[in-house]
C-alpha cells in the first residue's frame, strides 16, 4: 500500500506526515517507582463482570450507538496486536466533554485494557491504541461524559490462531 513511499520521505517528513524522533530519558525516578508500587492497578485478573462492577458500581451503562464510534478489525490475524480506536461525538468544551474512555476486552484475563482521561484541550474525543486479545471476544468502549453519563458500545473481534505454524 505504501510501496511508492521512500524511507526518506517517511523519515524526513517530506510526505503528508512528519515524524519526530525522540530519545528516551531512561533515568528511573525513585518518586515514581514508589508511587507506582502503591498506585492502585487499573485492572487485574478478574471477570469482566467484576471489573465493570468495580469501576462503575450500579451506574447504568447506556447504549452509546450514534455517539461512540469503535473501530476494530472484525477478524484479527494476530491477537497479540490489534489496532482499535474510539471516537465519541462531543463538543469537548469545559461544560460538555468526554472525561474518560475505557477500553475493555471481555474475555481477556485482564479485561480492562485502558482508561483514558481526556481534557477539552484535545478538541476531539479520540483515542487509538494497539491491544492484545487472548481469544475471540467482545471489545467494549465505555465513555464517561462530563455530566457523569456512561455510554457503551461493543463489537466482536474474532481472533485467528495459527494456521499450520506459519
Amino acid at each position: 500500500m505504501t510501496d511508492g513511499i521512500t524511507r526518506r520521505m517517511v523519515l524526513r517528513g517530506a510526505g503528508a506526515a512528519g515524524v519526530v524522533g525522540a530519545l528516551a530519558t531512561r533515568a528511573p525516578t525513585s518518586a515514581w517507582a514508589q508511587a507506582g508500587a502503591q498506585a492502585p492497578a487499573l485492572g487485574g485478573q478478574e471477570s469482566v463482570q467484576s471489573a465493570l462492577k468495580r469501576l462503575f458500581g450500579a451506574r447504568p451503562l447506556k447504549d452509546g450507538a450514534g455517539v461512540i464510534k469503535l473501530e476494530a478489525p472484525p477478524i484479527a490475524e494476530n491477537g497479540a496486536l490489534v489496532q482499535v480506536s474510539v471516537e465519541a461525538a462531543s463538543p469537548m468544551t469545559a461544560a460538555n466533554h468526554v472525561k474518560t474512555i475505557y477500553l475493555v476486552a471481555d474475555k481477556n484475563r485482564i479485561p480492562v485494557v485502558t482508561r483514558a482521561t481526556l481534557t477539552p484541550e484535545m478538541g476531539q474525543a479520540f483515542v487509538g491504541e494497539t491491544i492484545r486479545l487472548g481469544e475471540t471476544t467482545d471489545v467494549r468502549a465505555i465513555v464517561e461524559q462530563s455530566d457523569g453519563t456512561l455510554l457503551q458500545v461493543r463489537r466482536e473481534v474474532k481472533v485467528t490462531v495459527g494456521g499450520c505454524g506459519g
Binding site: G43, G44, T117, L118, E121, M122, V127, T130
Partner: peptide, 23 residues
Amino acid sequence: RTILTLDTTQSVSENPSFTFAFR
C-alpha cells in the same frame, strides 16, 4: 499542560502505539 492520561494494563500490546487528537 497535561491534556491526556492513559492508564494501561498488560492487555495493551507489546511495542504499543497510541493515537490521540489535540487542538
